[in-house]
Nucleic acid binder design. Structure first.
Length: 940
RNA sequence: GCGCUUGUGGUGGAAUUGGUAGACACGCCAGACUUAGGAUCUGGUGCCGAGAGGCGUGUAAGUUCGAGUCUUAUCAGGCGUACCA
């Protein structure tokens, strides 16, 4: 009996041995070059892993193992993003503590992950919800609170430096409350009164990236705008650095572009606009524009409804109309505002004075202007902005074209190219400043923008300004299951609990819902007051300002708090003195390869970069950018199967015959379908309803229909990796996940093809054993063919791993194993190299073979082989000779033939003669090792 | 609307970066061994055509001796974003 490929035995054995031998333990080793591979850590959901989750882990595990075999000291850690909404909502429903469900889920994840054979160093596991981890989340928050962003240095500085500066300038108030309020305008973590995305259904605020199309990403509940006092992070201060950094990292162009758009840098000008009420000058406001060149086309101004100026510019006559409009705007949800772009607005009664033309233009209030961007006020140029155009048409306001040849009778001309006209329309329409007046006529738009900026600056009418779309991140949540803030309120002033007293542990509560008085869930905590003198947390009944016992913050931190710097913690996960020791940070530097989904482009991947830049300013992180190379793995979609029930019956008709009947398609569990053929007995057993089902078959089989949909329980298309491992083994799963297609590409999971990978492993296994089950190995010199096969394979696989093209390297393995098997190769030289090459992809079988062959230690530490070109040289090359008439034949050229010799050989070949007869050669082209082209035409 | 991205057999996908399109795998067909097979092995399999041959990389043009690959236009799908002045 030949030796069987018993994957169960092999995989169990090696899981045991890897643990016993601590094969995957890594430590800092300055003598070796480091390589840091990282996956976005998962949120441990109750549903467990499906077959899509491990995709990225497998891809990076392959790379990590490969790098290790190349001699690098590889850090490849794993952990859990453990704070999150589902656990809390489950807790609200069942009363079970979220920690309990979270830890149970983590155990399940771990069990599933362990089956797949990753090279993670589990000693470095982190969980964002454990105190020894969130200690450093709180610590970073305190550092941000105690820092400000120095615009000149473009980096974070200690807040004391700012206080000194303010004192020197005489701007330091005496009152403590005033001091606190003043500093809040500068701190990187600050308490701010801002418009927030409030989700009433979830009872919490959400960050911009947590809201899509006006509803919450989690749960899909409506979101409204609300003004609230919240903790915020001054991410916007880092806008320019976040933008510049993109040019230094190896990320896909599309993700970088998404971040550039999200940061949204726009260069423009801020211009002061004086306004008059009832004919008298009453003050001024500032507008922002990127089209300073269109100042001569301004016919009205618009303020955002939420702007503080609204109140000031409203005249008594317009008061009622304005109030009504504001009421209307408030009644609209964010979602309505997004979808419905009908023109609305109201006249304020005031007029703004265009400083360039001196014209008085009406000031309107309209919701199409956003309070959060620029100054919340704009100058409207209907001729060259489609939104202003629609507004002007609706309210019958004048439209002045400013570009030569632009027809603005039907729509605005928004393009930024052309020659400027009507600027000014007549010489008296340009106000003189210090004897100079602006004239843009005849300039290109680009020139006109520059000229206007110069003019505005020179005469102090405004300033050149860069605006960013990126907004500060709202950092507090009204939830229980998150990091508590290390903050107490001393006489209403937010104060940090001293760093030495961290971590502040999440208190126990009876109920996870908000309190009856509307406080966040932490309001239910009893032991939740800060005793300043004794530096400890005490019962909140003891709160007594005179005794120095104060209330602690009830908000908790958002999901991205714990996930923003976790890669640093992996470097030194058990350090209780620091987030990461200087030695570990200096050694591991930053992540060389980061793998994860592209859905985090505007969330985690921005916050993480921001957080790291801040820690870099502090000297904690050693690199400005946290992730050198990013690979975005695609999503795995589900492939659903359908059966077709004839209406009003319990009879099911096969796919090919369904059009003959009136049928209803029904989702059927993909796990009882194989190659689209339904397992009839399993189907009857699947649900009592189908126990008595009848079938109309084709060719004795029931064929199911299929569709590509999201992988979800309700569509019965969830494929569990455990099942695959059970039936085929982890190595087959790993191979097949990679074989499915490029890692970056989204694709449906289809278990149908998996047999191919399983067969391949069996063939590989069979290469090593004779029919009696003994090692079939000789010390003979390998044949030239075998050496060529081997070196071709090494070359291909090495190149493919570097290029992240795993599907093609697996194909190459399949070809190579087929070739070696045909060559009946039993040479030790060749067969000993093969396990090393395959081990990143299929580590278990590789270890087993490596051991059987008497290899030393683990195959993980075997050196990655080098290929030798000399085995790849062809002795002769078979080439096509191509004529322009699409006629071709094959012939052999010597490998070292020059192009001239190739042409000579081709034209004089007997096969060529018949094509050349009666023709004259126009041109000959030879591509070495490829092809000869002979262009002929009939002789005149 | 804007930005990014992808279109190749029945299916997943290859193509040395401008050089024999469809590697490899699934599926399918035929055969072998079998009491049996959702096991294993061998051969075939882009489409049309009996055949010689013709046609083929979403569509249409272009550059080139030569285009899946480059250029332009166009169509279709996917992702992101949305009144950002």
């Amino acid at each position: 009996m030949a030796k069987e490929y018993n994957f169960r035995e092999i995989e169990q054995k090696w899981h045991r041995l890897w643990t016993e031998r601590q094969t995957y333990k890594v430590s800092e080793d300055e003598r070796r070059e480091k390589f840091y591979v990282l996956n976005m850590f998962p949120y441990p959901s109750g549903a467990g892993l499906h077959v899509g989750h491990p995709l990225g882990y497998i891809a990076s595990d392959i790379y990590a193992r490969y790098k290790r075999q190349q001699g690098f000291n590889v850090l490849n850690p794993m952990g859990y993003d453990a704070y999150g909404l589902p656990a809390e909502q489950y807790a609200i429903k069942t009363g079970q503590h979220p920690e309990k469900t979270t830890f149970a889920n983590i155990d399940r994840y771990r069990e599933q992950l362990d089956k797949i054979g990753f090279s993670f160093d589990w000693d470095r596991e982190v969980r964002t919800c454990t105190p020894d981890y969130y200690h450093w989340t709180q610590w970073a928050f305190e550092k941000m609170f105690n820092s400000y962003f120095d615009e000149e240095l473009q980096k974070a500085q200690p807040i004391e430096k700012l206080i000194e500066k303010l004192k020197k300038e005489g701007n330091w108030p005496a009152d403590e409350k005033a001091q606190s309020d003043l500093l809040m305008n500068y701190r990187i973590a600050f308490l701010g009164e801002t418009m927030v995305n409030w989700c009433p259904k979830l009872g919490t605020v959400l960050a911009n990236d947590e809201v899509v199309e006006g509803v919450s990403v989690r749960g899909g509940y409506p979101v409204e705008q609300k003004k609230m006092r919240q903790w915020c992070l001054r991410v916007s201060a880092y806008s320019q650095r976040l933008l510049d950094g993109l040019d230094t990292i190896d990320w896909s162009e599309s993700i970088k572009e998404t971040q550039r758009n999200w940061i949204g840098r726009s260069e423009g000008a801020e211009i002061e606009i004086p306004y008059s009420l009832s004919g008298e000058t009453a003050g001024s406001f500032t507008i922002f524009t990127t089209r300073a060149d269109t100042m001569f086309g301004v016919t009205f101004f618009v303020l955002a409804p939420e702007s503080e100026l609204v109140d000031k510019v409203t005249t008594p006559e317009q008061r009622a109309a304005v109030d009504e409009y504001l009421k209307y705007v408030k009644s609209r949800t964010e979602r309505e505002r997004m979808i419905d772009h009908t023109v609305t607005g109201v006249f304020s009664g005031a007029y703004g004075i265009n400083p360039i033309t001196g014209d008085k233009c009406p000031i309107y209030i309209a919701e199409y202007v956003l309070a959060g961007y620029g100054t919340g006020a704009i100058m409207a140029v209907p001729a060259h902005d489609s939104r202003d155009y629609a507004f002007a048409k609706h309210f019958g306001l004048p439209i002045i074209p400013l570009v030569e040849g632009a027809d603005v009778s039907e729509e605005s001309y928004d393009a930024k190219e052309g020659i400027v006209i009507n600027s000014p329309i007549s010489p008296d329409k340009s106000v003189k400043y210090d004897g100079e007046c602006l004239c843009l006529n005849g300039l290109t738009i680009k020139e006109a923008i520059a000229e206007t900026k110069r003019f505005v600056k020179a005469h102090n009418l405004g300033r050149v300004k860069v605006n960013y779309r990126l907004r500060d991140a709202i950092f507090s949540r009204q939830r229980y299951w998150g990091e508590p803030f290390p903050v107490y309120y001393k006489h209403g002033i937010p104060t940090m609990i001293p760093e030495e007293c961290l971590p502040i542990e999440l208190p126990q509560v009876e109920k996870f819902l908000p309190t009856e008085t509307g406080e966040p869930p932490l309001g239910n905590a009893q032991i939740w007051a800060w005793d300043e003198k004794n530096r400890k947390i005490v019962d909140k009944k003891l709160i007594d300002e005179a005794a120095g016992i104060y209330p602690i913050e009830l908000y908790t931190m958002p999901g991205f708090a714990g996930s923003s710097a976790y890669y640093l913690r992996y470097m030194d996960p058990h350090n209780s003195e620091a987030l990461v020791s200087d030695r570990a940070a200096s050694y591991w530097q930053n992540v060389d390869l980061y793998v994860g989904g592209s859905e985090h482009a505007t969330g985690h991947l921005i916050y993480s970069r921001f957080w790291n830049k801040f820690l870099f300013d502090l000297g904690v992180s050693k690199k400005e950018e946290p992730f050198k190379k990013l690979v975005n793995q695609g999503m795995i979609q589900g492939r659903s199967n359908f059966v077709y029930r004839i209406k009003e019956t319990n009879t099911f008709v096969s796919f090919g015959l369904k059009d003959k009947y009136d049928v209803t398609p029904i989702h059927v569990d993909v796990n009882i379908v194989k190659n689209d053929i339904l397992d009839l007995d399993a189907f009857k057993a699947w649900s009592p309803e189908y126990a008595t089902a009848d079938f109309i078959l084709e060719d004795g089989k029931y064929v199911c229909g299929w569709a590509i949909e999201k992988m979800s329980k309700s569509m019965y298309n969830v494929v569990n990796p455990d099942m695959i491992v059970e039936n085929y083994g982890a190595d087959t799963l790993r191979l097949y996940e990679m074989f499915l297609g490029p890692v970056e590409q989204s694709k449906p999971w289809d278990t149908n093809g998996i047999d191919g990978c399983f067969r391949f492993l069996k063939k590989l296994w069979a290469l090593y054993w004779d029919k009696d089950g003994n090692l079939a190995l000789t010390d003979d010199e390998p044949s030239a063919d075998s050496l060529k096969t081997l070196h071709k394979l090494i070359k291909k696989v090495t190149g493919d791993i570097e290029a992240f093209s795993y599907n093609t390297s697996i194909s190459a393995f399949m070809v190579a194993v087929n070739e070696l098997s045909q060559q009946k190769c039993s040479s030790r030289t060749v067969l000993q190299t093969l396990p090393v090459l395959i081990s990143p992809f299929a580590p278990h079988i590789a270890e087993e073979l490596w051991e059987a062959l008497g290899g030393e230690g683990s195959v993980c530490d075997a050196r990655w082989p080098q290929y030798d070109e000399k085995y790849l040289v062809e002795t002769s090359v078979k080439l096509g000779v191509q004529f322009n008439g699409k006629v071709r034949f094959d012939m052999l050229f010597p490998a070292d033939a020059t192009p001239e010799q190739m042409i000579e050989l081709a034209t004089s070949a007997p096969e060529a003669a018949k094509y050349l007869e009666g023709m004259q050669v126009v041109k000959t082209i030879a591509i070495p090792k490829r092809i000869v082209n002979i262009v002929v035409k009939p002789k005149a």
